[in-house]
Design a protein around this nucleic acid. Structure first.
Lengths: 219, 219
DNA sequence: GCCCGTTTAGAACGAACGTTTAATTAGATG
DNA sequence: CATCTAATTAAACGTTCGTTCTAAACGGGC
């Protein structure tokens, strides 16, 4: 029954905790069930992660920590292709969307948990969690805003900030409950089709950004 | 200390439960604390709502149940203004956005709880909860899609479905953590300013919808 | 008067929770 | 082999949880 005895206990615990938090929320996730699913003694969880809060933070950092570097790397890559010139909004959107979409499109065993984890953190108002995520998102958000301002110099900064927020929200919402969307649309929308989602979002949102660029002042 | 002795116990319980779920999630909300905050005996909660699940369902139905009627009423009202003609997408967007925005803009005592409740239900993958919300959203979603298809006959149905999803996501995301957004943007974006949010979303998303109408086939 | 829906009080149930402690194992080092 | 450290275990701590139960009070309507 033991599938991969080579995976170290910390990873097994993190995987199990990710499943539990995704399914039951932060408060509903039980350390005992996590330890059981990870085939690990309950005290081992404390040995590695000190407390439940420490475990949850490790879960979030493992998944969402690398996103910042991927965001910045994609921006740099696109800018290197056409040095000195402002990026087209379509490329900026691609840099924003591709890393989370890739994250939510990995192997099917983890996919559902990762997607639901997105939804959990969005709705979690706990101050510590929010502060941690704010810190994780801050740097890439600044980079995206700077790129957008260069690409759409006529657009007011506040409008661009709002729009970035709207894109983030649409992305999070689309990722976190994929099955529901497929059911509700009777299969017309399949969030597992990453390329399709990316194309739809770029098409829809780039029009919004271009409209901002065309209107120099708020009407 | 008793502020409003006129409010009946059921309402006090629902208010307290709303606070608790918003703050601690469905699993983290404690009936004992809810009863205490509602200045009600623990048994009274069971007397009225049978179980914790029953209480949670009552909380959700009270808040999100009226949304469907408001959505449909707004659509009817706008259509009555120009009978027979397809609604402009700006009006459809207004009908989609105004009821939730109004809901999240009520008196300051309840506002924060209502907004956080939005985030909680978005991230909650519990099958029963999702099924209940699906049922609540289905009718108005169909009405919005129909109006959009009349207004943008060239746009593929799947694209419109996706776009409606994106709008819903952006709205939910914007509503559920207002303070964070204001902090992160250093005050440039204030989600409590309902008119501003509405104007920003209509401007941004209507451009996206118009772009769909202009492209008859997927490129 | 009494009845009945409502509300309170108090206690208890078993279960599950986060956390801690002390003892034990396994592996490397000397 | 003895020793030291890291890893792992079993057991227990006290608390809180959802839920149920009983008994008693309250208040308006027939």
């Amino acid at each position: 029954m033991r599938r991969k005895p080579t995976v170290d206990p910390q990873t097994r615990i993190l995987d199990a905790a990710e499943n539990a938090v995704a399914e039951c929320g932060f408060a509903g996730a039980s350390l005992r069930r996590i330890a059981q699913e990870a085939r690990v003694n309950l005290a081992t969880v404390y040995y590695y992660f000190r407390s439940k809060r420490g475990l949850v933070e490790a879960v979030l950092k493992r998944r969402f920590g690398p996103l910042r570097e991927e965001h910045l790397a994609l921006l740099r890559e696109f800018e290197a292709a056409n040095p000195g010139r402002p990026l087209p909004v379509e490329k900026i959107l691609e840099a924003m969307l591709v890393p989370p979409l890739r994250l939510a499109a990995q192997d099917s065993a983890r996919r559902q948990a990762v997607r639901r984890l997105f939804g959990r953190i969005v709705g979690e108002p706990n101050a510590e969690t929010q502060e941690m995520l704010r810190h994780l998102r801050m740097e890439s958000r600044t980079a995206f805003l700077k790129a957008l301002q260069r690409s759409l110099p006529e657009a007011p900064r506040a409008d661009l900030l709002w729009s970035v927020e709207f894109v983030s929200g649409a992305l999070a919402f689309t990722l976190c409950n994929p099955r529901e969307l497929e059911v509700e649309t009777r299969g017309a929308c399949n969030p597992a089709n990453t390329e399709k989602v990316l194309a739809e979002m770029i098409r829809f949102f780039s029009a919004g950004f271009h409209a901002l660029g065309r209107r120099p002042r708020k009407g």
